[in-house]
Structure formats: C-alpha cells, structure tokens
Design a protein around this nucleic acid. Structure first.
Lengths: 139, 139
DNA sequence: GAGTAATAGTTGCATAGCTAATAAAAGGAG
DNA sequence: CTCCTTTTATTAGCTATGCAACTATTACTC
C-alpha cells in the first residue's frame, strides 16, 4: 500500500535493522542507541553531550537520556569543565574501555553479516543512496 | 563517525522524514504514524487490526495503540465481527471519510516536494534500494 | 559592573515502538 | 461434551525520540 513511500520504507527498514543491532548488543547489556552512543564516547573521550548529539544526529535531550542510561550502568561519567561551567565532558569508565574491543568486534560482525546478505555492492549502494538523501534534506 | 553504517544512516533519515510528514499532518491533528494508519483504514475499510499491522509493518500492539488514538479522535470505530468474536473490523467514521481527500492531497504534496528536492530519479532509486534491502532482510 | 542575551544541559510531557503477558473466542482431539 | 491448543486483540512495562520550558553559566552592551 505504501510501497512507493520513502518514509514508510525507510522507517520500516530502520526498525528491522534495529532488531539486528539490538541482538548484537544485548550481551553487553546495551540497547542499539546506547551501544552507538558508547562507541561514540569511546572513539573520542571528553566530548560534550551536544557534540555527541550532533554526531549521532539526535536531539540534545535524547543524548542526555542515553548518557543517563550509560552512567546508570557505570559506563561513562560526566565532568563539568572548569573553563566553562556550562559544559560537561563525557568520558568512558575503565569498565567501558574494557568493553570497547568486544563492542567493536560485535559491531563489525553485524556489518559483515549484513553485507553478506545484501551483497557488498548492494550494501554500499544503499548506504550511499540513503546518505545522499540525508544530505539533500540537510536544509 | 558512522558514515558507512546502514543502520545509522537509515534511522537518521527516517527521523528526518518523519518531521516532514508530521508537519503535513499537523493541520489534521494527526501524527505521522496516525496519518498513515488512517490512510490505510480509509483505503480498505473493515479490515482487522492484525491486517493493518501487517500493512504498516508494525507489531500488533503498536497498531492497537494507533487505533486507540484514532478512536479517541472520533476517526474510526471498532466493530466485533459476528462470524468470529475474536476479530474486530476497523471502519472510518464519517468525519474521517470527509478528511480523507485533504489527507491524500497533503500526502501527495509531501511526495511532490521530496521528489523536487531529491530529483525524480534520485527519489525513485532510493525508494527502490531501501525496499530491496527490506526484502532481502525479510527472512 | 548591572542588566540582558545567548548557550549548555537538563527536565517535563507526549508519542511510537517493541516484547511479554493476559483475556477471550474458536477449533480440535479424545 | 470437555480439555487443550491456537488465534485475535489488548494491556503492562520499558526504551527512544522530539519539542518546549527551565536552570545555570557565560558573554555582551552600555
């Protein structure tokens, strides 16, 4: 019925992919968004919530909530910056750093599996089209 | 950071597109998912919640909630089927039918605008790639 | 330097989505 | 017929997301 609708197809695919990732991150006690947030923190420790929100293309309050969840699990901590008291640096805990390697391996495994199912070329082409579409709608 | 991740790009695009549709449906007092659900009901009155859930590729409980919202707004009503007491037929109210034309026009307008921004070919190609990816992950 | 504007983060409130559990009806086996 | 299974729909509980409003801090203006 909505076969030709970009929104419908995109949203349905996003839900489907979330299930893949959720399964991969479950052993770490993380949901999909939490897993991505933690990977972003691990990739560049000390960044601000607003920067992380930009990275993940989510609203700032959503980033706050994801960070709350990670803090609750003892995976990140917040440190108010002395230079500017409005800003808080987000750093991974030792426990998160330890988890990092496994998390990246699990992530790579999901990508591998998807590429296998979709074909290397099909996967790349789809990512490209979706990213281009996002860029075009940037405004 | 997640430029090559299919999930990240797809989920971000879905959120971006939701904003377009939300704007278009706002004058009708509907959210994006509610608008799509109502269009599905209007397209084929008398169907079951489970069939609508399949159409929209959402879980049955999610369909129940969307229908609750539409019923609350006086746009659909549920009728238990006499043939099988487990099933309920979903029908649009007169008010919903009246809204139907405007809703479809607003929907067409969104598609038109997106095609204009993305280019007719780019739009079609993206829809195709996303739909094919969904099919490939059907299993 | 006092008052105003801007900025970072958070909180409040609402919606959508899922899984698991429940209720009710129908179907099937004996 | 009675018990068990299957099916439809719903409810319960949780997470993610966004907008709007609020707080605290910094920056700017005069």
């Amino acid at each position: 019925m909505f076969d030709h609708c970009l929104y419908f197809n995109t949203a349905a695919l996003a839900r489907r992919l979330d299930r893949e990732w959720a399964l991969a991150y479950k052993p770490f006690g993380l949901t999909t968004p939490q897993g991505f947030m933690l990977r972003a923190v691990l990739a560049r420790p000390g960044r601000l919530p607003s920067e992380l929100a930009d990275d993940l293309e989510i609203a700032r309050p959503t980033a706050t909530r994801a960070l709350d969840a990670l803090q609750e699990k003892g995976l990140i901590h917040r440190q108010v910056r002395s230079a500017d008291g409005r800003q808080t640096a987000i750093a991974p805990t030792a426990s998160a750093i330890e988890m990092g390697r496994g998390l990246n391996e699990a992530s790579a495994e999901v990508s591998r599996r998807l590429k296998h199912v979709l074909g290397e070329a099909g996967f790349a082409e789809t990512v490209l089209r979706v990213r281009d579409t996002r860029s075009a709608l940037r405004a």
